[in-house]
Structures are given as C-alpha cells and as structure tokens.
C-alpha cells in the first residue's frame, strides 16, 4: 500500500492559492503518521515558479496548453491516471470553486471514497481520522479516513499556510499529460471584478451585513452607520445574491478577504465560507439574535440585540462621540 499523501496544488493565473499551502501543512502531519512522503501535483504552465516554495518532498507535474485556464474536464482526465497509477493513501483538494468541480467526479469515476469539508486530520494509533466542518460551522463530524485511498476536499482554518511553505524548491518530476482534445468545458474569457467601487479588502472599518438585514430598505441603516464610523458596507453571500449590495462588496470564499481594524458583523451567522475571509481582522464585533451563531466563536465582542434596533442608536452615539 502506498503511504504517500498527494496534494493537488490549486493555482489561478500564475498564483498558488493559500489553500494549497494549508493542504501541504496538513499533508506533512499525515505523512509523518503514515511514513509516506508529501507529493504535490501541479497541472499547469511555468511549473518552476509555481513550485518554488511548496513544502513537498516531490512535485509531479504535467504541462499542457489545456491547463492555462481551469477546466474541470481537463483536470478530471489528467488526474484520473495519476491517482490510478500511484494509489496514494490520500489525495487532497481544496474544497473550493476549483477542487469542488473535480474531486467528487473522480470519486465516482474511480470508485474511491471522498470526504469533504475536512478541516483537520489526526492520527490515532497510526490510523488517520478526518474532522469535517458541516452545518454552516455548527457541527463537526469525525470518522476514519477509509483505506487504502481516499480523496479529500479541504477547507481552510485547521492549518496555517506558512507551515506549507518551504525555503527551498522541491524536486520536480514530469509526468506526461493524457490526450486532452475535445474538452467539453472551456474558458472563453474572464470578467474582472468591477473597478471603481471601493475595495473592501483595504478598508479600516467594515460594517458587514448578513441575512439579518431582512430587506433592501434596511441597507440604508448600515450605510449610515458605516459613514459615521468612517468605513464601508460589505455583506455575506445571501445579501449579495439578493442584489441588495454590489458583488464587489462580497466578503467570503468567492469574494474578498478583509483585514480591517474593526469588522462589525451584523446579522451574519458565521458560516465557514464567510469566516475564512475575515480571520485577519484586528477586531470582530458580532451582533446576532441567535446565541448559537458560530460568528460568536471568533468575535471579540458580541451581542444578541436585534441589529435593526442597534444600527440607528449606534449611528447616533458614534456621531455624538465624534462631535458631529
């Protein structure tokens, strides 16, 4: 049985994503328990640059024009052969907009088990266990990582990306790419995030609203509070999907990551997709009527008052404090 841990490196337009380093950090702990090696797998171009700081024992790479952009079809076909040939103990993917399109397909295609939303691993008398974060961060599920090979989709939060970086580039080994003609999924163009709007990732005060805002009319209350605090309004997924705020204001997995001095989370439950983007904030203050909301686990201060009651009062008191 192969005891190596494979990590499928996620990269987009020449940048390795943080989740790749998180996975390498996780893989090191697993490999220490199995006695195997950490093998990074890169499908792409300019592999030397992508691989230069990966904390892996070895890099298997494939180069093909089809990897210039992300195509689930190309990734599925390319990885199928690698996994079959090596049958490692585990293959880690980011539980992201990229890994999510690939791992579940491979699980079915190769008849290999799949664990998703995995946050950490632990070794128990040599046996590997996964811990996954489900139900919007309200529940953790633990179980044995099925042998001999399991595919895993990993979420951030359990390991620090710095632990997956190395000073020295790992050894590279080229693997031939399979035929990738007639791809059924192809990228035609990119739409850049809208410019001209504020960049929420660079603001010192972010007033962020979630489902608790209830309707579009109430957004104005948040705007007024943000203005009083000298900050901007951002939102979680439901608010953006309702069209109540522009997509540029989305904080979360497919939006922006922020690191303000104050992140005021109003009516935000704290689902993992949101929390992963606010962890670098200096101070999080959370207002939510649900005492079990996971947002309170990472906030410094919290309150269960109704955000709709709080916003106008707080705006007024902030204005008073500033002598306005």
């Amino acid at each position: 049985m192969n005891s190596d841990i494979f990590v499928v490196i996620e990269h987009l337009r020449g940048q390795v994503s943080d989740i790749s380093y998180v996975m390498l950090a996780a893989a090191r702990g697993m490999a220490n328990a199995t006695g195997g090696k950490v093998i990074a797998v890169i499908l792409g171009h300019d592999v030397e640059t992508l691989a230069r700081d990966l904390a892996a024992d070895r890099v298997l790479y494939m180069e093909h024009a089809a990897f210039a952009d992300f195509s689930s079809d190309a990734y599925q076909r390319a990885l199928e052969g690698v996994i079959k040939e090596h049958a490692p103990r585990a293959v880690l993917f980011g539980d992201t907009t990229m890994g999510g399109d690939v791992a579940a397909w491979l699980s079915t295609h190769l008849a290999l088990p799949l664990v998703s939303a995995c946050r950490t691993f632990r070794a128990d008398a040599g046996a590997l266990k996964f811990v996954s974060q489900i139900c919007g961060g309200k529940m953790m599920a633990e179980g044995d990582l099925p042998a001999p090979t399991t595919l895993v989709l990993m979420v951030p939060g359990g390991y620090k990306p710095e632990q997956g970086r190395a000073a020295q580039a790992p050894e590279l080994a080229r693997v031939n790419a399979p035929a990738l003609d007639d791809l059924r999924v192809t990228v035609k163009d990119y739409v850049e995030p809208a410019v001209g709007d504020v960049d929420v990732s660079k603001e010192a005060v972010v007033v962020s609203i979630g489902r608790g805002i209830q309707n579009q009319d109430n957004v104005e209350l948040a705007e007024e509070l943000a203005k009083a605090l000298g900050g901007v309004v951002a939102g979680s997924r439901p608010v953006i999907d309702q069209g109540w705020l522009a997509p540029t204001r989305l904080v979360g997995k497919s939006g922006k990551a922020v690191k303000p001095k104050l992140y005021l989370a109003l009516g935000i439950s704290g689902a993992p997709e949101h929390v992963e983007a606010i962890g670098d904030s200096e101070m999080i203050v959370a207002i939510n009527t649900d005492p079990a909301a996971p947002i309170f686990d990472i906030a410094k201060f919290g309150s269960q008052v109704d955000m709709l009651d709080l916003m106008p009062v707080l705006t007024e008191k902030v204005q008073q404090a500033k002598g306005l």
Binding site: L12, T97, K188, Y190, G255
Partner: peptide, 9 residues
C-alpha cells in the same frame, strides 16, 4: 473564482 473573478465558460 475567489476574489470576485468570473470566468465565462
């Protein structure tokens, strides 16, 4: 994709 990037596919 993360960061607000959208691919037309």
């Amino acid at each position: 994709f993360p960061g607000g990037l959208i691919a037309e596919m």
